[in-house]
Design a protein around this nucleic acid. Structure first.
Lengths: 291, 291
DNA sequence: AATAATAGCTGATCTAAGTCAGGTATCTGC
DNA sequence: GCAGATACCTGACTTAGATCAGCTATTATT
């Protein structure tokens, strides 16, 4: 192997060139990068400007000026928050939405262009980018509740089903259908659906639904391959257990399959104990835990 | 699979943050990024400032000022090129070398830190970075002659040997030793050693050495796994054949092993024809080509 | 030898970005 | 009800980076 440091530096130069071309006068729409970055965070529904300031780590004076310049372009409108009149909210105007769509088109085209350069290695390139992004962003994983019918949730479930279909003999894709048949079981006060995001890309999920008056069942623990090895599954399980307790459940159960040894090992080391079977195929192992 | 474009954007944000932090470490030594980038290109042996200007795409006025500020810090010295007294050359002073060593330490530490974050996936992270860097830089591959005893050449040979030891049954690492026993056979006027660089990182090599008065032997064709699929082997072979012809040879021979089917396929499609065996194990196939 | 081209420098000017010390309006806790 | 905290704004200032016109010295062309 050639020097790892030299490789990392070459990587840095390569992506600096790639994203640098992207940076300067952001995507060539005649707007400084700072203003463009702010614009990206403003939604038609309105974004609290304090949120923008925190996310971009901007000085309040600087942000104030950037917002004013965007307002002068009629891309955003500013309003006072009625609940706290010190705060202000930025809204994307119809003109602003048009402008954002233009950014989107360009960004899309650039991304497609980059992927095209990989030729037949496209999937390998995406996998490589995933691994790097997840590694670099591992300190920024955020776990948030989601609507089980939201597109991100369905994407997670689809990925989860793909894993099952690939790993467990006898499972075919048509045995697993979307969306869930009982979504209301996965929202408070009956249950929960938690997604782990790495910079807004879902990389893991877990859910809990009612099983008996004081017992809930944990379902659909999934961690994307690019995000493994950082204890995310453990974190997801800990979160869902806490959530179930808060919902008033006093015990949890779950089933799993022998083809998922990492999951089984995790349950064994986190206080779960084997219980009698309560489901059929594809389950081969059953666990319970008192909260 | 989740949306490829979203993944690519997440990747962009992740590495932007990462290389941004790297930029700040340059700033961390009390010098603006521009000056630091210039300093990186100045060698103790002297660098033509026109070369710096082209590489960094700097305005001559701006570069002039940056050089002056580095000179004021006693990190570089400027001299007039004796062969063309309009040109100037920048040399790294001993103080400058000390400063560069400091940058090197920082870069090394940061790189080690990034790699450490990958935990046990370190090798996977490096492979992923290689694939991305090579894909993004594929239009920037440069083929240059090298001294067969130079560190880059030895690194190539080591990688080549690793491939052989891994793919061919019966080869053990101790059968292949560095450096070459006959380096003088690989430099003009007897032979050549060509390395393919992707932004200064060797990703492939090939060589030719004398076999008979008008016949030379092609040896050690290697392409790094991250650089495959872009026709680099073909380009290396074309280059080495042209080089052999320029050295006065009228025919070429080579041997290879059945465990390297891509190489054999390449020879078949580029005018090489099977010839009688002229070597023993590990060779299993022999080819010749008239120039 | 006259002219044009080239390499580099200087001074003037501009923009983006960031920093900081106030200032105003509003809210919160006691 | 009031002190202090909070959210945001304003104006003044700084730095990095870039651009451009014009300058000198040198080399190449004819």
């Amino acid at each position: 192997m050639l020097d790892a440091i030299a490789r990392l530096r070459r990587f840095n130069r390569a992506v600096t060139r790639e994203t640098g071309a992207l940076d300067h006068s952001y995507l060539g729409r005649g707007r400084p990068l700072g203003a463009a970055r702010v614009l990206q965070l403003v939604t038609p529904q309105g974004t609290d400007i304090a949120e923008i300031r925190v996310k971009l780590a901007l000085d309040s004076g600087l942000l104030s000026r950037l917002l004013r310049s965007l307002q002068a372009e009629h891309l955003i409108s500013l309003a006072t928050d009625p609940t706290d009149r010190r705060r202000r909210t930025a809204h994307l105007t119809p003109q602003g939405q048009t402008e954002m769509a233009a950014y989107d088109t360009i960004g899309h085209a650039r991304a497609a262009d980059t992927l095209a350069r990989a030729g037949k290695n496209q999937q390998a390139l995406i996998d490589a980018m995933d691994l790097i992004a997840t590694t670099l962003l591992q300190d920024q994983l955020s776990l948030r509740d989601a609507d089980p019918n939201a597109p991100e949730a369905l994407a997670c479930l689809q990925s989860y089903y793909d894993v099952l279909a690939q790993k467990i003999d006898g499972i075919t894709p048509d045995m697993l259908t979307l969306p869930l048949s009982d979504p209301q079981n996965y929202v408070a006060p009956r249950g929960a659906f938690v997604i782990a995001y790495s910079d807004d890309l879902p990389v893991g999920c877990v859910s809990v639904r009612p099983h008996a008056p004081t017992t809930a069942e944990v379902k659909r623990l999934w961690v994307d391959s690019s995000a493994r090895g950082h204890g995310l599954a453990r974190r997801l399980m800990h979160t869902i257990e806490t959530r179930a307790k808060a919902l008033g459940y006093t015990s949890l159960i779950l089933d799993t399959n022998q083809a998922l040894p990492e999951a089984i090992a995790l349950y064994h080391t986190t206080g779960w104990t084997p219980i009698p079977p309560y489901t059929d195929f594809p389950a081969t192992h059953w666990f319970g835990k008192a909260l």
